[in-house]
Design a protein around this nucleic acid. Structure first.
Lengths: 158, 158
DNA sequence: TAGCTGGCTTTTGTTTCCCTAAGTCAGCGC
DNA sequence: GCGCTGACTTAGGGAAACAAAAGCCAGCTA
């Protein structure tokens, strides 16, 4: 980490994966729409109402999420209803679930109601609470102070 | 999940932990400043330059992060230099690391350079890559399709 | 004590995000 | 074929976030 920090100024943040991810989801409304999609919401006006956002904004953000490949838009038909479009998470969108779980976990710990969180996320198979944990590929749980940051192959001089 | 969705409209998102977390960190610059803090950056102008943000914005966001308890501001002194203030992560701020790791992971997978990510996060003790994983308290790894969402104690009627 | 440097603040202007209110359009039920 | 409903789009405007440029101030160094 010390070595890393010493050469920290030799490269730019142009290739930072966090910054790039935030260009796609770095905005409140987008993440809340993904929350709703993960809850199973599919219809346009449900998204707008449940997220608490106006229709023009919901339309613009949903369109962008489809363009970015996080949501899939496809026609569906309920009996006795006309054909509609629904929005469902793609694999790319589902892969953001750890971000949402980690945010919820932090919010539960530091910004929740006194009575507790409004939503519980559990493991469907066993009923236990689900958390986002840092683990290394060798299988260890990794506390924050055991993280090391190193320059990677995509490092660019600034 | 189906039961949950059926009653989804009976409560509001006023007590959503994700929304509350996003009121603190739901903005690109704030998360990038926390990224820098997690890399070990401490000085004001290093934050501004490395995040790529103007000084007024860096000053405002850092002040807010201190007010929110994610960063601690304290005086320090390098030999031969005058006293300065530095910004270091608090426990509350460190608890956001899973969010940053999850974002980086997603960015590495879907938005990284062809040559690879610019930064590697590893376990200091064993050198293996670190990831944010969903795990339940019973110890199982939880894939996205095994998540269940249930109403919690802080649920509010809308 | 005069200058230099780090760490901000002030000013001004632009862009992005979001709102409300109203309008459009397609298709099903009647 | 007429209205209704769901799914948007258009128009107009306010607030927040950001940038560039410049100024201020404290405390070392000389």
């Amino acid at each position: 980490m010390t070595d890393f920090l010493a050469q920290r100024d030799s490269w730019s943040t142009a290739n930072c994966s966090i910054a790039r991810a935030l260009e796609v989801v770095g905005n409140r409304t987008t993440l809340l729409l993904l929350r709703e999609a993960s809850f199973g919401t599919r219809r346009f006006d449900d998204f707008a109402r449940r997220v608490g956002v106006s229709e023009p904004v919901a339309a613009a953000r949903l369109k962008q999420l489809v363009a970015d490949g996080l949501l899939d838009r496809r026609p569906y038909r309920e009996p006795g209803q006309r054909t509609r479009d629904e929005y469902v998470l793609t694999a790319k969108g589902r892969d953001l679930l750890p971000v949402l779980v980690a945010l919820r976990q932090w919010g539960d710990a530091y910004a929740a109601d006194e009575v507790g969180p409004s939503v519980l996320v559990t493991h469907h198979d066993c009923g236990a609470d689900v958390r986002a944990r840092l683990r290394c590929d060798a299988g260890h749980d990794v506390p924050a102070d055991e993280l090391a940051v190193l320059p990677g192959p995509g490092l660019r001089p600034s």
